[in-house]
Simulated scan of single mutants.
Amino acid sequence: METTKRRLLLALAGMAVARPGLAQGQAGAALPAFPTRPIRIVVPFTPGSGADNSARYFGERLATQWGQAVVVENRPGANGIIALQAVKHAPADGYTLLLASNSPMAVNPLVIKDLGYDPVKDYKPLSGLARSMNAIVVANDSPLATLEALLAAAKAGPLTVGTYSAGYHLAAAWLAQLAGCTFSNVPYKGQAPIMTDVIGRQIDFAQVDLGGAMPLLKAGKLRALAVSGETRNPDLPGVPTVREKGFDEYVQYSWTSFYVHAQTPAEVAGKLAAALQKTLATEESRAFVRKTGGELMPYPPEQMQRFLLEEIARFRKIAAIANIRPE
């Protein structure tokens, strides 16, 4: 009996040696080494966009944590579909991250047929990042000096509005429906070319990320007619909210968050999520997001997943109000 017991103990010890990673994981000790090579962050928008700037800023902080390079890869086009499909088809090893926004994750499924990806099933949330108001902007010398003037002009004839994602397009269409007017959407791949065309008055106005527009607003090249937040932005106290102008239900924020392939091992996803939470908890990160006109949204994975489902449901109601159907 003693010999049998001794053999069993030796066998169990041998299993622990043969599978140290498993033994350590069960005991709550060190996880497998990760990362051991560079990581890339895929961004669905052009360089210079708010999402791109955030990817580069937080990528640098993650690189410092890990001692590995973090490379930002811009894959704009097709309302974010190109980028999301690239991540879907990448190896599920944690070395490809996605920095996505509300447009490809919560709006595309409602307005675009045959996406080629499922935002809920194909990706695993790592962390929320930030949210920011939309800004309705015109050239500084535009005759449309107020939101009331813009909406009145749109009732007389369609105005052209520049947007660079399905989320902004839907938000503009929602406002037009509530105001009883018409906007003609002009799609762009990123915010920078929209700003150029607004300043040059090639389009009448734009609905864009406030953070991305802030430098031009402060430089006096653009004028903000309204913002889409619950309250006014503290950096633009003289700019009203849309809801102040009689549209009580009109509140809209654009948000960003990090994801990986849904099949990424839990241990790897957990390490990525922990690194992001550590980075977002710093005063430096809070100051960066505040400087861009936004606020941190550091939701952990489970909360981010719940938030995504809530946003899909919210945008579904907005699409119905704006009479927008999948095309």
Results as ranks from 00 to 15, higher is better:
169 H>K: 14
138 V>Y: 13
64 T>H: 11
89 H>A: 12
44 P>K: 06
273 A>S: 15
133 M>I: 05
210 L>F: 13
206 A>T: 07
51 A>L: 12
266 A>L: 08
308 L>G: 06
299 Y>M: 03
294 G>R: 04
193 P>D: 00
125 P>G: 09
157 G>T: 07
140 N>W: 06
295 E>A: 15
105 M>I: 09
23 A>L: 14
318 I>M: 08
305 Q>H: 12
232 R>A: 01
224 A>S: 09
71 V>C: 05
49 S>G: 13
64 T>G: 06
297 M>S: 05
277 Q>L: 00
111 V>W: 08
194 I>H: 05
187 P>L: 14
303 Q>G: 03
300 P>L: 00
165 S>G: 14
18 A>F: 09
208 V>D: 06
107 V>F: 01
20 P>W: 05
247 F>S: 09
48 G>N: 04
218 K>S: 07
277 Q>I: 00
216 L>G: 01
108 N>V: 07
325 R>F: 08
264 T>A: 10
189 K>V: 11
85 Q>K: 15
182 T>L: 06
30 A>G: 02
164 Y>P: 05
163 T>D: 03
133 M>Q: 15
12 L>N: 04
258 F>P: 02
26 Q>V: 15
127 S>A: 13
247 F>R: 10
120 V>Q: 14
251 V>K: 15
51 A>Q: 11
271 K>Y: 05
30 A>P: 02
294 G>P: 08
87 V>P: 12
26 Q>E: 07
170 L>V: 06
14 G>H: 02
312 I>Y: 10
67 G>W: 02
150 L>I: 09
31 L>S: 03
48 G>L: 05
209 D>Y: 13
86 A>T: 15
285 S>H: 01
295 E>V: 10
139 A>T: 08
190 G>E: 01
106 A>Q: 05
125 P>R: 00
302 E>W: 00
130 A>P: 04
224 A>F: 09
243 R>E: 04
37 R>A: 13
166 A>Y: 02
25 G>L: 13
137 V>E: 04
179 A>G: 02
4 T>V: 10
105 M>H: 07
184 S>R: 15
18 A>Y: 06
287 A>H: 10
145 A>N: 11
